[in-house]
């Protein structure tokens, strides 16, 4: 009975998962502000509360994500690439390709049968095709980003969005709106545009089934559908898809704790 924790500090949200004997026993999700140190602490406490456990019971803690170096507790720091590969393979053992779309970057990871990273590619230079792209465009349409998935599914004639740059896409969305296009049609166009960008990134490492979609943007059903259509393959999405990095971290912690005990 080993309890381990994984803390994933992303650009937008902090996630924590507690795992015991390969099973998730607690989790938390909270926005990240300017005080990352405090946000990491808070995420960990919330997950402990969720699991009804105490800090002293956690045998091993692994940190990951964009803000991983600001976590002041824990025994190990691992890149989010390794954690996503590990977490996705745990939930969907057939996973060979992971697409992770987070708040500020997009990653594709090709993984082995054992959940090890074989190759990866990422875009972290620009907001195009990331959660921020959707966030900015959703706001331009007067929606919260959490609402746009279901709305986009009601599209009848998806609009083509040609801008790559988030700033230009925001203007493009506004001009589609002023020309009388319907918000669901514009949203469907935005999702299709991100799906195309994701596919190009995926082609850099090779598109191999099964594809598992992770990160905050994978919570968006419209995006999941657009991606499956564009890639031409079914896409695995877990209800825990936003927690995959933290889950992978906690699972790597399980291995470390077992190794240390042996």
């Amino acid at each position: 009975m080993t309890l381990t924790g994984g803390v994933d500090i992303g650009s937008t949200t902090a996630k924590c998962v507690l795992v015991e004997d390969g099973r998730v026993v607690g989790k938390s999700l909270a926005p990240v502000g300017v005080d990352i140190v405090r946000d990491a602490d808070h995420a960990f406490d919330e997950a402990l509360l969720d699991a009804h456990r105490g800090r002293e019971e956690v045998a091993f803690i692994v940190g990951t994500g964009y803000g991983r170096f600001k976590i002041r507790f824990g025994q190990l720091v691992v890149t989010e690439i390794s954690c996503h590969a590990r977490g996705a393979s745990h939930l969907f053992p057939g996973t060979r390709l992971v697409l992770d779309i987070g708040g500020q970057d997009t990653k594709v990871i090709r993984v082995s049968e054992r959940g090890e990273v074989e190759d990866f590619a990422m875009n972290d230079k620009c907001a195009a095709g990331t959660g921020r792209f959707l966030d900015v465009c959703a706001n331009a349409l007067g929606f919260d980003v959490a609402e746009i998935g279901p709305v986009s599914l009601t599209a009848r004639r998806p609009v083509k969005v040609t801008s790559t740059c988030t700033v230009f896409a925001e203007s493009e969305v506004t001009s589609h709106l002023s020309r009388g296009k319907e918000p669901p049609d514009i949203l469907a166009g935005l999702h299709a545009s991100i799906a195309s960008r994701s596919l190009s990134l995926m082609q850099r490492v090779g598109v191999v089934p099964e594809v598992t979609f992770t990160g905050g943007v994978s919570r968006n059903e419209g995006m999941v559908r657009a991606l499956a259509q564009r890639v031409g393959l079914p896409v695995n999405v877990s209800p825990l898809s936003q927690f995959i990095g933290a889950l992978g971290a906690a699972l790597l912690g399980q291995e470390r704790a077992a190794g240390a005990g042996a």
């Binding site: 650009s11 300017v34 500020q104 230079k125 620009c126």
Partner: peptide, 15 residues
Amino acid sequence: VCAVLAETEIINHIA
């Protein structure tokens, strides 16, 4: 160089 990602960086500088 991204006009959108610069926001995060500016917020961090302010913090």
